[in-house]
Amino acid sequence: MSDRRDPWFDDDAGPLVPAYAVTRGRTASNRHELDMITLVITMSTGLGLTRLEPEYREILQLCGVPKSVAEISAEIRRPLAVTKILIGDLIDDGYVAYRSPRPMNADSADINLLRTVLDGIRAL
């Protein structure tokens, strides 16, 4: 029999709190358009942060330098949808800023860039 003080889980088990509990049941945020490649940067140190979930502090620490939403999601080990909601909360509270990629339309597309992408796809 194992010692009662031994943990019954390990790091490979993943987060113990279900994702929906962290977001309080929210499944989407309609306030901000966040893509996987949207860059996020901390604007405030987090002093006075009223949100208790540790993921919020982790995001603030990670984003001292600009990070993409996908990178943040991987670092905090949460699904992308959950990460977007958490980042949206921090944006609303004024702790982080974000910059989404500028959409490219066909009129302003650089033909050389498109050729390079096509060449890369053909090389696969």
Rank of each mutant, 00 (worst) to 15 (best):
L52G: 15
H32W: 04
I111G: 04
Y20H: 14
P54K: 13
I76H: 10
R77G: 01
R26G: 09
L49P: 08
N105K: 02
T116H: 01
L49V: 00
G120R: 00
L80G: 04
G120I: 00
L62I: 13
P66N: 02
S2P: 10
V117M: 15
K84S: 10
I37N: 15
A97W: 00
Y56H: 12
Y95K: 05
E53A: 13
M1D: 14
R78S: 14
V17W: 08
L60C: 07
R78M: 14
G88Y: 13
A13Q: 02
E58M: 06
A74T: 04
I59T: 08
D3A: 06
R99L: 01
N30H: 11
L86I: 14
L90H: 15
P15A: 06
L118N: 09
D110I: 06
V65H: 11
R57Y: 04
L62F: 07
G48L: 01
E53Y: 07
D93H: 05
R26S: 11
W8N: 01
P15C: 01
L86P: 15
N112A: 11
I87E: 05
V22Q: 11
R102P: 05
V40I: 14
V40N: 07
R57K: 13
R102N: 12
D12Q: 08
I37W: 12
E71Y: 03
